[in-house]
Amino acid sequence: MSIGHTLLGLLESGPRHGYDLKRTFDEKFGHDRPLHYGQVYATMSRLLKNGLVEVDGVESDGGPERKRYAITDAGITDVGAWLSRPEKPEPYLQSTLYAKVVLALLTGRSASGLLDAQRSEHLRLMRVLTDRKRKGDLADQLICDYALFHLEADLRWLELTGARLDQLAEVIAP
């Protein structure tokens, strides 16, 4: 995910402090990985340098100094261009899992055991996500579903590969 574009987008509704930006981001997108302060300031300084944001003001109520950022016209254009640009689908070719299966076959280890273990792990994660989805709000549900569908796709691949192990073994280790 492009954090720069996301933060820019958040600024479009009005100027914010860096801390404010981080809190909003975490609330909306950062369930799994909250943003680090350093990451926010690094990103903001890059955006400043590119002229996409400007410093709207500095406050310091006795504490540390806090900058307020606002989006520039160039920044708005950039957000618009980012949103309208389709993401490139990720083909996931040559995944780690495939490599593991092939290696297991080549080295005479149990490929189906590997697949089963992976399936369990996938399902465990899916169960956690499902649980979170059930307890969360709509945003949680959509985010979890995204992950769940991907995991399900992995699982299907695991199942199919499991059914084709014999075939695969013949091809790679005749």
Binding site: M126, L129, T130, L148, L151
Partner: peptide
């Protein structure tokens, strides 16, 4: 046979 349905379980067997 759907993993997403199975994910509602506490435990799974194959």
């Amino acid at each position: 046979h759907e993993a997403r349905v199975a994910a509602y379980s506490d435990r799974d067997i194959v």
